[in-house]
């Protein structure tokens, strides 16, 4: 066997394995009409909310317009993240292709990471496609570029957290509907933590308050403030749920 042939038939590196899955998944989004339909519906909803709520009919400060737009878009991002992530692993299990993945050279962690990245990249594209709306504010208002970038960083981090939750939920069930319900319930619980925080005492109060997915941590991004606390929070949520998704996939391997 020549060196070239040996290279051809050798086990793929983790990176190439992950990128193969990501490419395949992205192609399934963008190679068919469904991905574009999802993108255009998302943009349509974002556009309607931008016109009716953010810009509104009364004169508003540019910063408030941007802030309302980011607030509304965060809701759209969470909903999109839930819808995008529900099929990730659940579909593989339903169609039986999970066996192919499990028997590949990739570890459970790499499979989960690849699935997460593919959904996340699609979400990132959706989020970035909305960027022309805050850019429109420049036509008649004045807004800081830093505010826009910070707001979008918040959307990207929030999206990553919800996609990670979705990846975990998708790894628990073979039904996409159940996966979507799981993701919605976990996301809703985390979003509503600020309500729970009102009825618990310290020090648990601080813990619960800091677990609130949106009200506490996204608001700062929405207002144009970059906070180390909030970046750390979203990265922690993403990391914890991806680790749990990996464990869930691994547990399935033992029960295969």
């Amino acid at each position: 066997m020549t060196t070239d042939q040996a290279r051809k038939y050798s086990r793929p590196s983790a990176f190439s394995g992950i990128s193969l899955i990501v490419k395949r998944e992205l192609l399934s989004y963008f190679g068919t009409r469904s991905g574009y339909v999802v993108a255009s519906v998302t943009l349509l909803i974002a556009g309607l909310s931008f016109n009716t709520r953010a810009v509104g009919s009364s004169a508003r400060y540019s910063r408030d317009v941007l802030s309302t737009f980011l607030y509304d878009t965060s809701g759209i991002v969470m909903a999109a993240a839930i819808l995008i992530s529900l099929r990730l692993i659940a579909e593989e299990r339903k169609t039986g292709t999970i066996h192919l993945l499990m028997n590949s050279a990739l570890s459970e962690g790499q499979i989960v990471l690849a699935k997460f990245l593919s959904a996340y990249f699609f979400l990132v594209i959706l989020i970035l496609l909305t960027a022309y709306m805050p850019a429109l504010i420049f036509l008649r208002g004045r807004v800081s570029l830093g505010h826009i970038f910070t707001g979008y960083l918040g959307l990207l981090l929030l999206g990553a957290a919800v996609v990670a939750i979705g990846t975990f939920a998708s790894s628990l069930s073979r039904s996409q509907v159940i996966a979507a319900v799981f993701t919605t319930v976990i996301t809703a619980l985390l979003v509503l933590m600020w309500v729970l925080a009102k009825v618990v005492d310290p020090p648990l109060k601080e813990v619960v308050t800091n677990m609130a997915l949106h009200n506490i941590h996204f608001r700062t991004f929405q207002q144009g403030t970059l906070s180390l606390r909030d970046v750390a929070y979203y990265l922690s949520i993403t990391g914890v749920f991806l680790y749990m998704a990996r464990n869930a996939v691994e547990a399935r391997r033992w029960t295969l």
């Binding site: 910070t150 906070s227 914890v240």
Partner: peptide
């Protein structure tokens, strides 16, 4: 361990929080 570490990590970043405000006003 990961969850506990995340809680501790978030506790520390909350206490030692650094903020940069990019908005006007």
């Amino acid at each position: 361990l990961l969850v506990a570490s995340a809680v501790v990590f978030n506790y520390i970043t909350t206490r030692e929080d650094k903020k940069i405000d990019f908005s006007f006003g």
